[in-house]
Computed example of a mutant assay.
Amino acid sequence: MTEEVAVLGAGMHPWGKWGRNFAEYGAAAARAALTDAGLEWRDIGAIIGADTVRGGYPGYVAGATFAKALGWQGARVASVYAACASGAHAVDAARAQILAGLADVVLVVGADAAPKGFFRPAGGDRPDDPDWLRFRILGATNPVYFGLYARRRMALHGDTPDDFAQVKVKNSAMGALNPFARYRSRVTAEEVAGSAVVADPLRLLDICATSDGGAAVVLSSMEFARGHGRPEPVRIRAVSTVTPRYPNAVLDLPEIATDSAVAVDPPEETFRRSIARTAYEEAGTGPEDLSLAEVYDLSTALELQWYEDLGLCGEGEGVKLLRDGATALGGRVPVNVSGGLASFGEAVPAQAIAQVCELVRQLRGEAGDRQVVGARVGITANQGLFGHGSAVIAVR
């Protein structure tokens, strides 16, 4: 089992469309995390920034950008980019520094100021980038991918558009209770069905928005935590950042086929399932031990897929889990009690850190009306483009 690191503080800047520089959101989240930890910025030995490709050059050196915004104090600095998994990879880099003895306490920050509409590749023509190629050659924006995934579930497992809508209903009810969420109103299945079609069968309310926001956590060695009055802090027990395994050659969101599907048998497990398995193995735990999960619900249909990929149920049984209420607050394994992307929208480098923030609040028993009673073990999960895995397991 990997050595644990403590989470001393968690902080966020509310999600929305604020029209300001990403560094402002990150600095505000960082200050909130420091306050939660009972520490000052000068106490931090290292800062890891999760990069944004939409913030110009400062976004590519996010660690230094946030350090400057907080005030130069000599901390070690690093910047990490892993697309949607950037925040979790930044957490992993911070953990590595702590376990290597390079720093006792590390601040991890991610923030974004997102454009309106769907995300498009940044940085001009990039013919070696499959993300750019699918936009340029196929016209396949992210919602098109989400729609293909939903169609696949409908064909293989009999999922229906109403099932997808019920994911939104569940998550919006939680987002209505979360002060950091962008959308804080309940949504009905009828409202989902009445919203505009974006990528059949998905409608506007099935797909997450793009948002501004920031999140931060303060991590430390267990020795530092105990020496600062935190004998039983929330602890990170595992971080999975694995890449796909051949012949699983699809590096993008839907695993509809592989580049080598004609020549070889399909892989025994999908990329996302390997992300979860690696996290469970490192933590010495399994899906049966989970109190809650925070997953990357880019679309309502994708959340159902995560149920299966995390081992909460068997293949094709995600809808049954949803219909039985198992993933709602009070159910066997509540999923996205933060409200998920359905309520926040996507602020790419911040979101995986925000997922950890939710686990921290839940495991401390500080989530108010969203509290999962007796929460002891939580997992986060998302996937970055180009083969970036991401899962974090935290325990109390």
Rank of each mutant, 00 (worst) to 15 (best):
P267N: 00
R54G: 10
R31Y: 09
K168Q: 01
G74L: 12
G11Y: 13
F146I: 05
S86R: 13
T210V: 12
A96R: 14
V242T: 14
V319G: 10
G26Q: 09
I207T: 01
T278R: 15
E191V: 06
A181L: 04
G194E: 14
R272D: 00
D265E: 11
P115K: 10
T2M: 09
R376L: 03
A238F: 08
R152W: 04
G318I: 11
E40F: 00
N171F: 00
V80D: 01
E282M: 14
P247T: 00
R332K: 15
L107G: 06
R323A: 08
A64I: 11
A176K: 13
T270L: 11
S211P: 08
D163E: 01
K170A: 02
D369K: 15
S79D: 07
A82L: 07
I137N: 12
A62N: 06
R186M: 04
M174F: 12
A10K: 05
L70R: 08
S240M: 07
R376Y: 10
A225S: 05
Y57L: 04
Q355K: 14
T285C: 15
L290D: 00
E4R: 15
F386E: 07
F118I: 04
A83P: 09
P254A: 14
F118V: 13
G55W: 04
V395D: 12
G55E: 07
A67N: 03
L310P: 10
R273N: 06
N248D: 15
R370T: 00
G330M: 07
S211T: 08
F180Q: 14
Q383Y: 03
D43K: 05
F164P: 09
R182P: 07
D324Y: 05
T300L: 08
Q97M: 14
V109F: 07
F164A: 03
G378S: 09
L177S: 02
A263F: 05
G38K: 11
Q73K: 15
D369F: 03
A263N: 08
E268D: 08
P247A: 10
V91S: 04
S172T: 05
R95F: 07
P58F: 04
V77S: 10
V187N: 04
V7P: 09
A375P: 07
A67Y: 06
V377N: 01
I393Y: 07
G101T: 10
L8K: 03
A114F: 00
D43M: 06
L202E: 03
D252N: 06
D162H: 08
L102R: 11
A114D: 09
A181S: 12
S172A: 15
A6K: 10
F22N: 02
I98T: 01
R134E: 03
V106S: 02
A30L: 03
D252S: 15
G214P: 02
Q355S: 08
L34P: 03
A283Q: 12
P161N: 03
L138N: 13
R95Y: 10
D112P: 11
I137Y: 05
L292A: 04
A176M: 04
P349E: 02
I393V: 15
D212S: 11
M1H: 14
D289I: 11
A263S: 14
G38W: 13
P130S: 03
P127G: 12
N171W: 05
